[in-house]
Design a protein around this nucleic acid. Sequence first.
DNA 1: GCCAACGTTGGC
DNA 2: GCCAACGTTGGC
Length: 154
Amino acid sequence: MRYWLMKSEPDVFSLADLKARPGQREPWDGVRNYQARNFMRDAMQKGDTVLFYHSNTNPPGIVGLAEVASDPYPDPTAFDKKSKYYDAKSDPENPRWILVDVRYCETFSRMVTLEAMKAMPALAEMRVLQRGNRLSITPVTAAEFKAINKAGLA
DNA sequence: GCCAACGTTGGC
DNA sequence: GCCAACGTTGGC
């Protein structure tokens, strides 16, 4: 069982949107960064816990939990010419972009803001808090998850 | 809207 | 394979 942080702009796709989806489940499409793709393709497993982070909003932070709900498979938006995520260089015979489905788990009773995270000693080494980090998917340690989950349910 | 940080692209 | 130019991310 592993833990992950996944960023989404709530204007585009929020945790509430995930909750409202049929089956409370959605493909995490549109990732076009190789490191983030590699995490989904190579390291995620069904049942892994996802900290759902809202970026580009005020305040940014973690709003709740989801889980990995599928094995990795090719991102269909890469082959859809009408999608803004269309990538002409992704060959259907050898797909460049891989995703997993995520499923809604719960909404924190209290959002754990970026500011609060920066103030938590347990998160001093957390990847998403390191300077210059822009990765939309990052691994989270069990200790980091525990600290955030506790703050979110407080 | 600004801009620092970072990833990708493509000419050479 | 270098690196300048460009595009994107995301906090503020």
